[in-house]
Amino acid sequence: MLPLHDILVEQFKSEFGEDLLHCEIRNRPEGVKRPRDQRSLWLTFHRRHFHMAVTFLSRFGAPHISCPMASREYEDRIDLIYPFTIYGGTGNYMELPVIITAQVPRDDLRIRTVTDIVPGILFMERETREMLGIDIEDIPDERRLFTPGNLPPEMKPMLETYRGAGRGGGR
């Protein structure tokens, strides 16, 4: 029988075919006396397939969101990186991080919310909204999360444009 991560890859490939833009398994053994394989699965989708991909992932187990979404900027698009994990809490070194990258075109910064599948992601989506200016469609809560009210609304601190924007502070 195939190991779980391979099954997952097979399933994703057969379900999404061409729409799965990139797929990779990384492995990095940890431990000294009893080294353990630690695999992680990296998938890339366009934003229109992203919601479907998370829905598909949730068939294998409840996805847990590990970290707020990081972003990588290109000329024509912003990649949003969602680090999910599944099979957590089963014990026995079974957990598998599934890191899904969603490509969001720059001229239309929108992505559909996944709070309907992973309710715990709400805070992170709110953070993405204020930090990157990416509009989350159907998000249940549209308020800011962290940034102070005096921050100009057009300033999205985590965008490359604002790298070093706070410099010149100090006394």
């Binding site: 962290f146 604002y162 924007a165």
Partner: peptide, 11 residues
């Protein structure tokens, strides 16, 4: 002195 957070926009 603001310490390590010198350049932050939230300070």
């Amino acid at each position: 002195t603001k310490g390590v957070f010198q350049e932050s926009y939230a300070m």
